[in-house]
């Protein structure tokens, strides 16, 4: 373990990380976001899901620094008297959860198909890549909306509310897989003709095994970069869907849902209900994206 740490501290990655203040700042912001979300039940001043704790008399309180504000609601309250800070912390959980799961889904799905297409080639390659090409011609948010709409029409409302989270994960994941598949296919085409793969083939290792244990580790570098960048996109996609009212159910408000609710009060001067969740979303996505950029540069020897 300590060996691994020592090796990491010796690596190029750590070296470039230390030299980039922007990256360090992004990492800190990202850590705060993830930490805040993970620890929400412990650090949030209120439980926004506990209806019994809401008091309508406390609705529309401005942030604490305003003279009308109240110190127990640091960022103010929404139309139902929900603490905005707590709602953001809990909302970030949903946003991150959907983001991570959707990215993981897209990665696994896209990498598997990319490997297959690149390694087997021929008809399999053509079919898979044409599907990916077609899908790449649509904006991914459209694909996500389509999937969500179809599921909504297909299952009854009560069932839909229970599986809504999975539907959103699936909808976003399925809209992002072609990027992974195309990248992995390209790298696989290169790796497939290298000596170690030929050697493995000669001694009779089954194809699946070759793909999984020999080719896969050698194509994962770029995947890591795409996955990181994609995490930001997935979080944004979820926020967009929830803002449009088709994402996660309103009983589990994500950041996008909070912004949608707050949007109704923007004109009437109660700006904090929409602005703070919006700022949190910006901070979260921006820090993840900057980390992704750094990773791309650090892993690409040509850019150094």
């Amino acid at each position: 373990m300590s060996g691994a740490i020592a090796r990491f501290r010796d690596s190029d990655l750590w070296w470039s990380f230390k030299r980039s203040p922007v990256t360090i700042l992004s990492a800190v912001v990202a850590l705060i976001c993830v930490g805040g979300a993970l620890l929400a039940p412990f650090i949030a001043p209120h439980d926004p899901f506990d209806l019994a704790s809401l008091n309508l008399g406390d609705a529309f309180k401005p942030p604490a620094w305003d003279e009308m504000g109240d110190a127990i609601y640091p960022l103010g309250t929404d139309d139902q008297g929900r603490d905005v800070l707590s709602a953001i912390l809990y909302g970030a959980r949903i946003s991150l959860l959907v983001g991570f799961c959707a990215t993981a889904f897209a990665t696994i799905f896209g990498v598997s198909l990319g490997l297959l297409a690149g390694y087997i080639g021929g008809a399999v390659d053509s079919v898979l890549m044409r599907i990916a090409d077609i899908q790449l011609t649509f904006p991914s948010i459209l694909v996500a909306l389509l999937v969500d709409g179809v599921v909504r029409a297909a299952v009854p409302r009560e069932v839909h509310d229970q599986i809504a989270l999975f539907v959103v994960v699936f909808a976003i994941g399925i809209s992002e897989w072609p990027k992974f598949a195309r990248t992995v296919r390209g790298s696989t085409l290169v790796e497939r003709n290298k000596e170690y793969v030929l050697a493995a083939r000669v001694i009779g290792v089954p194809s699946l095994r070759i793909m999984a244990s020999h080719v896969l580790p050698n194509v994962l570098g770029p995947v890591l970069v795409i996955a990181t960048l994609n995490l930001g996109l997935a979080i944004l996609a979820e926020a967009t869907l929830s803002f449009l009212g088709v994402g996660v159910p309103p009983t589990q408000p994500s950041l996008g849902t909070l912004i949608r609710i707050g949007n109704d009060f923007l004109f009437s001067g109660e700006w904090w209900i929409a602005i703070f969740p919006g700022l949190s979303l910006v901070a979260m996505v921006l820090s993840v994206n900057l980390l992704g950029d750094w990773l791309r540069d650090a892993l690409n020897p040509k850019l150094r």
Binding site: D50, L51, A52, L54, L56, Q80, T251
Partner: peptide, 15 residues
């Protein structure tokens, strides 16, 4: 939403 919260406060968990 407000009614649901008010009922929850007397123990009637309202969806």
């Amino acid at each position: 939403q407000a009614i649901a919260a008010m009922w929850a406060r007397v123990g009637v968990r309202t969806q």
